[in-house]
Computed example of a mutant assay.
Amino acid sequence: MQIDLTGKRALVTGSSGGIGQAIAAGLAASGALVFINGRSHEGVARAIEQISREVPDAQLAAAVGDVTDAAESVVAQAGAVDILVNNVGIYRPREAREITDAEWREMFETNVFTGARLSRLLVDGMLERGWGRIVFIASDAAIAIPADMVHYGASKTAMLALSRGLAKSVRGTGVTVNSVIAGPTVTEGVRAFIAEKIDPALSWEEAQAEFMRSERAPSLIGRLIEPAEIANMVVYLSSPQASATTGGAIRVDGGYVDAVTT
């Protein structure tokens, strides 16, 4: 399948590193002009440099700002956007009975409200042009709620509901809305999380293997997912070829969720 996004403009939130950067690289490799988003000019510039090395012909631009409280500024920098990937998010281990109101608010503000806000700001332009793609990066935690991150899991469940509801609101318009349910993926944050949770003294290979055995045993691939593997699905959902896929929650979880459907 040859995916061609030439002429499309994409905004990927939280794309100065991790999964977001991989998604931005994938969209750029397919010909889209991609706006790289991060909180600092330095981080965004670094990501643009890294993606440019990976994708020599990449069309990249900066959209600097914290989308949790400066969404309008980020949108103004990006202008008319055909593809919005709501990737930015946070996670933090915390025993369920110890989660404070402030922590609940922060989790939902970042993981749910930010995507709702950006979608609201950009969807009218997509509707006017008769074409658009909105993709939310969810998590297996939306379905298999982790006991040590109940607030995170709940926010990702809410994200699935938001995505489905938005898809209904734009039915029959040429605009699609989907979620990607990402499984445990290799990022710097996940590396630190695993090292702390398993044993900081272990090598990365040993810690990862033990994490998959003890914490993610249902995984059918038995390893962490690479960011590019998440990006591949997002690029497809952002393409004209995915015109009949909307309102979906598509799993790229390595078979972790033990269910026939979402």
Rank of each mutant, 00 (worst) to 15 (best):
G26K: 01
G26N: 03
G26Y: 00
G26S: 04
L27K: 03
L27T: 11
A28F: 04
G31R: 05
A32Q: 05
L33S: 09
F35P: 13
F35E: 07
F35T: 14
I36P: 14
I36L: 15
G38Q: 14
G38I: 14
G38R: 13
S40G: 05
S40D: 04
S40N: 03
H41I: 09
E42C: 02
E42P: 06
E42R: 07
G43Y: 11
G43K: 14
G43L: 13
G43P: 13
G43R: 14
A45L: 10
R46N: 14
R46H: 15
R46M: 11
A47F: 06
I48G: 09
I48W: 09
E49A: 15
E49Q: 15
Q50V: 05
I51C: 02
I51G: 00
I51D: 03
S52L: 05
S52F: 00
S52C: 01
R53N: 07
E54L: 00
E54H: 01
V55Y: 00
P56H: 00
D57C: 01
D57Q: 10
D57P: 00
D57W: 00
A58P: 08
Q59D: 02
L60P: 08
A61S: 12
A62M: 09
A63I: 01
V64L: 05
G65S: 04
G65I: 05
G65K: 05
D69P: 02
D69C: 10
D69A: 08
A70P: 08
A70R: 15
A70L: 07
A70M: 09
A71G: 00
A71C: 06
S73F: 02
V74G: 05
V74F: 05
V74L: 04
V74Q: 09
V74S: 12
V75S: 02
A76K: 12
A76E: 10
A76T: 07
A76P: 04
Q77W: 04
A78C: 06
A78P: 14
A78E: 05
G79T: 01
A80M: 05
V81P: 13
V81M: 01
D82S: 07
I83H: 10
L84A: 14
N86K: 04
N86A: 08
N86Q: 06
N87Y: 09
N87H: 15
N87A: 12
N87W: 08
V88M: 10
V88L: 13
V88C: 07
V88P: 10
V88E: 09
G89W: 11
G89S: 15
G89E: 13
G89M: 11
G89D: 15
G89P: 13
Y91T: 14
R92V: 07
P93T: 12
P93R: 06
P93N: 06
R94Y: 06
E95Q: 13
E95L: 08
E95P: 06
E95S: 09
A96W: 15
A96S: 12
R97Q: 12
R97S: 06
R97T: 08
E98S: 12
E98D: 13
E98P: 06
